[in-house]
Amino acid sequence: MTDAAPLLRALIVDDETLARANLAFLLARDPAIRVVGQCGSADEALAAIGGMRPDLVFLDIEMPECDGFELLERIGPSPAFAVVFVTAHNQFALRAFEVGALDYLLKPFDDRRFARVLERAKERLRVPGEQQRFIVKNGATLDVVRFADIDWIEASDYYSTLHAGGRAHMLRRSLAELETLLATHGFHRVHRSAIVNLDRLRALEIREDGEYEAVLASGQRLRMSRRYRKAVLERLQAGEVARPLRGG
């Protein structure tokens, strides 16, 4: 029997070697956490975050050249991870929560304080198995948007907009990246600028001009391009998600 895969991928960003080592030691004691990397500067973190795909980043605030807040600004709104700021200065606490930090660790902290912070993070982010949610910054809070709750996704320049439960969430990830990530979760592209959750699809209407329109449970209608039609129909027929309806 093999051990279950770690639930949360953690990245440590701190310019102090001892501080990184201390965090790594504390995180290693929790079997639900996998430390995927340690970075000694914001530039190093910027180069590594995309490949490491962390769920949770322990981020120092005061670092040479670029501090923790500047790092988040360079990454852009709605990063695909939650942040716990780690700092020796309490004057940054308010600003940390204003930018949507999950929590704030003031150095030096004891094991009990760290354990409370980590438990809150796990409760907020925990999902069975692989990642099945996005962390989206919304003002001073972080919204957890589950894949299953998403109706459809549209391209928005260098971002993507998640439409879920009547709300729109902007995510700094390309539609091509999301298409690959969500392909095994029941999503499929229907147009060069739109991906649909097939569980939310209620009908495919064939218009008078022969083009298809995807009709979602929410009532949203999305044009389906011929390029993606065959693949969508094959997935629908295989899963019996919906039947094409003539009309409109």
Results as ranks from 00 to 15, higher is better:
D15A: 03
L8S: 01
R229Q: 13
F58R: 00
A214N: 10
G210D: 11
R146Q: 10
F109C: 04
A148S: 14
F114A: 05
G50E: 13
C39E: 09
A10S: 14
L245C: 09
R221F: 04
D3Q: 12
F134R: 00
S174Y: 02
F97G: 05
L178C: 10
L105I: 09
A4T: 09
A101V: 00
V145G: 00
L125I: 11
E44R: 04
K107N: 00
E234Q: 14
L71Q: 04
E130H: 11
F114P: 00
E179H: 06
Q220S: 11
V117N: 02
V144K: 12
E130Q: 12
P108S: 05
A194F: 15
R74S: 05
A80D: 15
L125G: 08
P6N: 06
Q220M: 13
G50A: 15
V36N: 06
A10V: 15
A217F: 06
V145D: 02
R172T: 14
P31T: 12
G37F: 04
N138P: 02
L59T: 02
S193E: 08
F58D: 03
A32D: 13
E65H: 14
A42T: 01
L204R: 01
Y212D: 04
G37V: 01
P6Q: 03
A176Q: 15
D30N: 14
E98F: 02
Q131C: 12
K230T: 15
A168M: 11
A183L: 03
E130K: 11
G50D: 15
L7M: 10
L162W: 04
A10K: 01
A164G: 03
L198P: 03
R74P: 03
L23R: 03
G100T: 01
E177D: 10
W152F: 14
R126L: 14
R167Y: 08
S160D: 02
R133Q: 11
S218K: 05
V99T: 09
G100N: 01
E179V: 12
A140S: 06
G139I: 10
R34T: 13
R246N: 12
G68N: 09
S193A: 15
R29A: 15
E70L: 07
A121Y: 07
A48Q: 13
I206G: 05
R53V: 15
M63I: 05
R200H: 13
L222W: 00
S193R: 11
R173C: 07
G166R: 07
A214Q: 08
Q220Y: 05
D30W: 04
R167C: 07
S218Q: 10
I49V: 15
F25P: 01
F134A: 04
T2F: 06
V36Y: 02
L216F: 03
A217D: 14
A121Q: 08
T2S: 12
A164T: 05
V136Q: 01
G129W: 01
D3L: 13
P77W: 10
F114I: 08
